[in-house]
């Protein structure tokens, strides 16, 4: 409970620091680039294999009903709307989020954050704002890339492994995924991105001293942000698609 209050207060400071000064543009570009480039490879791999499994899974569920042709629709609904945004959030939390937490925690115990304060620079503005803006710029794009990879790979499995009709797949998937759904996915990913960044930076700022402290902060960052995103996903799905 006190942690939650401290977190809300932290978000308030970040919001104020971000709005009071023009953001450091160069740092934003660095962060956006770093987050995007480092998260992309693992995201491609995970998206690809979640896509393949989704196809196999859908096939197993619908074939007994004679509905295996609906697999394109299943992939679009389950994969595009739900799995892709959450999966991107989970992987970005695991990769970029843990990096934010451990970098900031290391700066905290090395008194580098105090050094920023003494140099009259708000550490929230200098460390959190660029990461926040960076992640918000990048995560919708990562989500779109992940959706594309996922659908492509489940198409591959549906057609080549399961021997289904590719045209059916594409028609159903396209019919189910309206442009507005993609926008909703992007919106979801923005919410997730903000949560991941704020939670990870929060745990970094409030680390305990020593290597063990850094480890714990990093650990807490990934678990709390992943759990928050997954839980919030249901609410967002109800609002956006329900």
């Amino acid at each position: 409970m006190t942690t939650l209050l401290a977190f809300v207060r932290f978000c308030g400071i970040v919001a104020r620091a971000s709005l009071s000064n023009p953001p450091p543009v160069r740092r934003i570009v660095e962060e956006a680039h770093g987050i995007g480039v480092r998260s992309l490879p693992i995201l491609l791999v995970v998206s690809a294999f979640v896509g393949t499994n989704l196809a196999v899974q859908g096939y197993n569920a619908f074939a007994p009903l004679g509905g295996e042709r609906l697999i394109g629709m299943f992939v679009a609904l389950a994969g595009v709307r739900e799995l892709a945004p959450v999966m991107v959030a989970a992987m970005v939390a695991a990769k970029a989020g843990t990096e934010m937490a451990s970098q900031i925690a290391v700066m905290r115990i090395g008194e580098q954050i105090d050094a920023l304060e003494v140099m009259a620079l708000s550490p929230h503005w200098f460390l959190v704002t660029p990461r926040l803006v960076g992640i918000l710029l990048v995560i919708p794009a990562l989500t779109m890339i992940s959706i594309f990879t996922l659908v492509l790979c489940s198409y591959g499995v549906a057609v080549y492994q399961l021997g289904l009709d590719g045209n059916d797949f594409i028609q159903l998937a396209a019919a189910t995924t309206r442009p507005v759904d993609l926008l909703s996915c992007a919106a979801k990913s923005l919410v997730f991105g903000a949560i991941i960044c704020l939670v990870s930076c929060f745990y970094g700022f409030h680390t305990r001293p020593g290597p063990a402290g850094v480890g714990q902060a990093t650990n807490a960052a990934v678990v709390v942000s992943a759990v928050s995103c997954a839980a919030l996903n249901y609410v967002l799905s109800e609002v956006l698609f329900g």
């Binding site: 791999v45 843990t98 290597p211 402290g213 850094v214 990934v222």
Partner: peptide, 24 residues
């Protein structure tokens, strides 16, 4: 301490990536 942070990061990312692939 930075090395510990890196280790934690790698642990999560590599483990998840590997078992998602194995899962298929």
């Amino acid at each position: 301490a930075a090395g510990v942070g890196r280790a934690v990061n790698n642990a999560v990312v590599i483990a998840v990536t590997v078992f998602v692939v194995v899962n298929y």
